[in-house]
Design a protein around this nucleic acid. Structure first.
Length: 281
DNA sequence: TATATTGTTACACC
DNA sequence: TGGTGTAACAATAT
């Protein structure tokens, strides 16, 4: 499920754990999820970990990069020989020890620590790329919403490119803005008091400003709470994020908004979309 | 049994 | 051409 805040959370934990580690062994159980040559990363040292959009990028000292996309149900679990990070996963079917039947790729480091790639639905992947291939892949992604470049003017420009798009689907379009998925798109519309099916061209200046602020506010808040654990997301150490307690509309159909309004659910672009019928206009 | 599920993309269609 | 909308990918849970 990971969206930007979850991937960012994992990235921050990976930075602390795997920089400087040397890859000693790679085990691939689902070849379709590992693209590239294992031999290209054997013996390489991890020099840095970055995130762009929902991609994780591991830089290696041999000039190669490992690009990781977790898609809907991918997880990265780091296990230290001390056992410190080998803790249980709280949510079935992930309350299993690692490795388990959803562990499809295993990277063992020279010092004995291990990084497991688990993925129930098998949509996620790891790719070994050189610098040029990596940049080509990342070029397709839109602006980072938490970068200083994402100004209100820039946002207005982007909105004007697709006047007939519905705002929620627009926010989720990775080629325009990076990292907003289905959960946060609903939440952002809620915080901005705007109905998710409003088209871009109908938005007032004030509403655009509120949406822009909400994007930044919601994503930052979610990162602060280590992401959302709606169903099967866990942190690098196997624990849940706690942002789900902060969700205002997502997965709350039939409940009451703080304003007293009813929270409704509709489908947009084949995805569950939640909103308050009172305070979103 | 039918429907739902957090992401992305291939492809049909206009 | 380009933009848009839908099915598909797979394995569950309800």
């Amino acid at each position: 499920m990971p969206e930007l805040p979850e991937v960012e959370t994992i990235k921050r934990q990976l930075v602390q754990k795997i920089i400087g580690k040397v890859i000693a062994e790679v085990e691939v159980n689902k070849p379709k999820q590992f693209k590239g040559k294992i031999v290209d990363i054997m013996g390489a040292k991890i020099t840095d970990v970055n995130r762009k959009a929902k991609f994780l990028i591991l830089d290696l000292d041999n000039g190669k990069h490992i690009l990781i996309h977790l898609k809907m149900t991918g997880q990265l679990i780091f296990v230290d020989p001390s056992g410190k990070y080998g803790g249980g996963h709280p949510i079935p079917p992930f309350n299993l020890p690692v490795p388990n039947k959803y562990t499809h790729i295993t990277i063992r480091f020279k010092d004995g620590s291990v990084l497991y790639f688990n993925d129930l639905r098998q949509f996620g992947w790891m790719k070994v790329l050189d610098k040029i291939e990596k940049e080509k892949e990342l070029q397709k992604t839109g602006i980072e919403p938490l970068s200083p470049n994402f100004t209100i003017d820039k946002f207005k420009q982007l909105l004007a490119k697709k006047p007939n798009a519905k705002i929620k689907l627009f926010l989720m379009d990775q080629s325009i803005i990076s990292g907003i998925g289905n959960i946060y798109a609903s939440e952002i519309c809620y915080y901005a008091h705007v109905l998710p099916d409003r088209t871009n061209k109908t938005l007032t200046n004030q509403e655009i400003q509120r949406i822009h602020e909400s994007i930044i506010k919601v994503l930052k808040l979610a990162i602060k709470y280590n992401g959302t654990s709606a169903n099967d997301y866990v942190n690098l150490d196997g624990r849940q994020g706690t942002f789900d307690k902060m969700l205002r509309v997502y997965n709350r159909k039939g409940k009451r908004c703080e304003c007293g309004g009813a929270i409704n659910k509709v489908k947009m672009g084949q995805r569950g979309t939640y909103y308050c019928d009172n305070c979103q206009k």
